[in-house]
């Protein structure tokens, strides 16, 4: 696996893009997010991927689920609040039908959050994942990104189970309030 080489030259979103490609993840559906925007841009610019925006995270999950059953592996990108709309689709589709649904979630709501709504919704994320028995890992360090993303994808496919990768502000910088000067 080429991306395991910790040369430190690539940004987190370049590593994620490259590891997705190495694992033949060809379909990317998303609902827009500021922190994920460089990853979305990198995926749009690479013709290896079919990348498009959806109206809701549930819709994005449905599309990736259908594509998997048709023989194409995909990933859904979203932010924390978007994940909070998903438990029904996960509990009644991805989990019981054994779909290796990959989710990449940018974490809002901690480490300098300025919006109480985001902070509250963030507290529901890991308990929701745990209650459905969905494997999840939080990415904080650049040198761990390639290994965790690669192993999470291969485990999801081998065990036919959904999995979530949570991108923490320590990795991405997160989103902070712009102060008036």
């Amino acid at each position: 696996m080429n991306s395991a080489d910790p040369n430190g030259q690539r940004a987190w979103y370049e590593i994620v893009r490259d590891v997705l490609k190495e694992n033949d993840v060809r379909l990317v559906t998303y609902v827009p997010d500021n922190v994920l925007s460089p990853l979305m841009k990198a995926l749009h610019e690479d013709p290896f991927f079919t990348t498009f925006c959806c109206t809701r995270e549930e819709e994005a999950v449905g599309i990736v689920t259908g594509a998997w059953m048709g023989g194409m592996l995909g990933v859904v990108l979203m932010q924390t609040s978007g994940f909070a709309t998903l438990p029904n689709a996960l509990a009644s589709l991805a989990v019981p039908y054994q779909i290796p649904l990959l989710m990449i979630i940018s974490e809002r709501g901690s480490l300098g959050e300025f919006n109480l709504g985001q902070a509250m919704v963030c507290r529901t994320m890991r308990p929701s994942l745990d209650s459905m028995g969905i494997e999840h890992h939080t990415l904080r360090r650049l040198d761990e990104v390639a290994f965790i993303v690669d192993r999470t994808i291969s485990q999801a496919v081998s065990t036919q189970a959904p999995a979530a990768l949570i991108l923490n502000a320590l990795l991405t910088g997160g989103k902070v309030e712009k102060k008036e000067k």
């Binding site: 379909l27 449905g62 599309i63 689920t65 594509a67 998997w68 059953m69 029904n88």
Partner: peptide
């Protein structure tokens, strides 16, 4: 045939995904 048992509203998104993966069907 694929039969949903929940996830109300996702028949067209799932069909859309199958259509992307298998453009000749």
């Amino acid at each position: 045939n694929f039969y949903m048992l929940g996830s109300m509203g996702l028949a067209f998104p799932i069909a859309h995904g199958v259509a992307i993966a298998q453009p000749n069907r």
